[in-house]
Design a protein around this nucleic acid. Structure first.
Length: 585
DNA sequence: GCCGTTTTCGGCCCGACTGTTTTCAGTCG
């Protein structure tokens, strides 16, 4: 079965081949279709299977012609049109265009002149000085290509949100302190709080752009200056990420924020909408002819276009514009709305700190409660707890809670565990002990390579355990390190609804699991979620911000997240408690 | 090749900067 990712990759590549051939407009059509498929919630294969060709045509950006091509791909796993293009121009186009500064035109020229087909060819030619001598190229272009290849190898081109955000805020703060600077904002994928960040975008309003630029390029973390102008400067930081700075007038601050926050698809759609309404929208404002209609705030721009302002996290042209035009945007969970953390590891297993240290740290992070969820026995490498150890830990938690009460603190430690799901879907702790816990998390930590059907069946079996409250990190992925295990998340969501199992949004910056698209599905299905840090150290409670961002990108509201409630209310939403209540009633 | 709160035909986002030019093409966001 061919996946959305594979289909979108082929559509993107077709767009690039057509671009090289100088075909008008079609490249953008294919790019748009590729993007649309890439960001689709449902597998195109499923859509086609269920509702046929017409349903594929209903996907935005896909019309009769591309739908037929997708059908061919689904049926045969191949696409003659694509193969013909590849044959006519036998170059690894996806690979080459991933290099910073390499576009279709350069790829074309390099193939014509030097028969360059791959990064390997390109590196060899650049290293031998063969590129600098081609007309239209030069020494600098050659150097830039070599650097681009090096960067691509080193980083895969993107950085984790959790790694980048502190760096960006540090720069933001220094810009704010500058004398000639009035306003500062972070824009781009960072403002959208994407899982991974390609580069940093800073916006500054100032009457003395030259001074600001001078400061920016002389910051200690700068390793390279790509370009430096009056309004735009681009640099590389020593950490490896690129950063752009734009200086704009105050009157354009909102317009620039809107323009540079994106994403690209959102902006294209918004600008087309503006044009239809007789405006022109650029980074300096919303214009009718020569007249500035709006520009100082994003809100007045969106308002002039007849819509409410979508939160940056959901600006990706996935329906937010239509909903905003109808003033029906959901109220997203706020960054201060989470009251407790339901996945916390301690030095009872693989965490660094004691239960008390974790509790104290959570308290000073503003939380009202945490659940201690150490690993269980079949995860031997962590010293996972057996029934006896769990009971002992529960006793210690009781003591600590008494201590908090004696000190007049309302902070509460809940008893929990991260219980292993065995290969056959059984849990590795006896039910009578699980029943004594406040919060039972269940998780897959082994047998990642089961077939989709087996993996799904196994997890569902575990979810059906009446003591299993929350499915931790439901897909097991580690961003840029490990693919998710093959599991039918749609089915998991369905079963979560049926069984009252909570799905976790693991806020660890490497996990961010569930993904936004599944969060949106779960929310739509009425499944409850919890945002947890998965903290293994007392310094990790700030992960909550990443988890909340993830929830916002999945259109989740405060009510969709159980741990936005005080702990007594939160517990009532857990399956275990519901069962007990049902039994009593 | 796609799409429609002006359109089923005629459009398709827009501006900054670099490098290699001698007035501009290419790339990026």
């Amino acid at each position: 079965m061919i996946s959305n990712r594979e289909i979108s990759k082929i559509l993107y590549e077709i767009g690039e081949y057509l671009e090289i051939k100088g075909v008008m407009f079609k490249p953008r059509a294919y790019e748009k279709a590729g993007y649309s498929v890439e960001n689709l919630e449902e597998e195109v294969a499923e859509i086609y299977k269920k509702n046929g060709l017409k349903a594929v045509e209903d996907i935005p950006g896909i019309g009769v012609s591309i739908a037929l091509k997708v059908e061919e791909l689904l049926k045969t796993g191949r696409l003659k049109y694509y193969e013909k293009l590849k044959k006519s121009f036998p170059v690894k186009i996806g690979e080459l265009s991933a290099i910073e500064g390499m576009g279709p035109k350069m790829i074309f020229k390099l193939y014509k002149k030097l028969k360059i087909r791959s990064i390997k060819d390109l590196e060899k030619a650049a290293g031998a000085g063969k590129i600098a001598v081609i007309a239209g190229f030069g020494k600098k272009t050659e150097e830039k290509i070599l650097k681009g290849i090096e960067f691509l190898r080193k980083s895969g081109g993107r950085f984790l949100l959790g790694v980048v955000l502190p760096q960006a805020r540090s720069i933001e703060n220094r810009l704010k302190e500058l004398k000639h600077v009035n306003r500062v904002a972070i824009a781009g994928s960072l403002r959208r709080m994407q899982e991974t960040i390609g580069d940093l975008d800073f916006l500054v309003t100032s009457k003395k752009p030259k001074e600001v630029m001078k400061f920016f390029v002389s910051m200690p973390e700068i390793s390279h200056i790509y370009s430096q102008g009056q309004t735009k400067t681009m640099v590389r930081l020593k950490s490896g990420i690129d950063a752009d700075l734009r200086v704009i007038p105050d009157i354009s601050f909102g317009a620039a924020s809107q323009y540079f926050t994106g994403d690209k698809r959102h902006n294209i759609t918004i600008r087309a909408l503006a044009e239809r309404k007789g405006f022109k929208l650029n980074e300096y404002g919303l214009w009718r002819g020569e007249k500035l209609i709006a520009g100082e705030t994003e809100e007045e721009i969106y308002k002039s276009l007849g819509m409410v302002t979508p939160s940056p996290e959901i600006r990706n042209d996935s329906g937010e514009i239509q909903v905003a035009l109808q003033n029906k945007l959901p109220k997203l969970i706020g960054y201060g709305d989470v009251r407790g953390d339901l996945q916390v590891q301690t030095n009872w297993t693989d965490g660094e700190n004691s239960i008390e240290e974790m509790a104290e740290s959570a308290k000073s992070a503003g939380l009202e409660y945490i659940a201690i969820t150490d690993h269980t026995k079949s995860l031997a490498m962590t010293g996972g707890a057996d029934e006896k150890k769990l009971l002992k830990q529960m006793a210690e938690i009781d003591q600590l809670n008494s201590k908090f009460q004696a000190l007049n603190s309302k902070f509460r430690i809940l008893k929990g565990a991260e219980v292993n799901i065995l290969k056959d879907g059984m849990l590795d702790i006896k039910d009578e002990v699980l029943a004594k816990l406040d919060v039972v998390g269940i998780a897959v930590h082994s047998h990642f390579n089961l077939s989709r059907a087996e993996q799904t069946k196994r997890i569902i079996k575990a979810m059906k355990n009446k003591n299993a409250d929350i499915l931790f990190h439901p897909t097991g992925r580690l961003i840029q390190k490990r693919e998710p295990y093959d599991v039918d998340v749609e089915e998991i969501i369905k079963v979560a609804k049926e069984t009252g199992t909570i799905l976790e949004i693991d806020a660890d910056p490497y996990r961010l699991d569930l993904k936004d698209e599944y969060i949106r599905k779960a929310v739509a299905a009425g499944v409850k979620l919890s945002i947890n840090t998965d903290a293994h150290s007392k310094n990790s409670f700030h992960y909550l911000e990443f988890g909340i961002a993830q929830a916002r990108r999945g259109w989740a509201g405060k009510n969709d997240i159980i741990n936005t409630r005080p702990w007594p209310e939160m517990l009532k939403l857990l399956k275990t408690k519901q069962n007990i209540k049902n039994k009593i009633a």
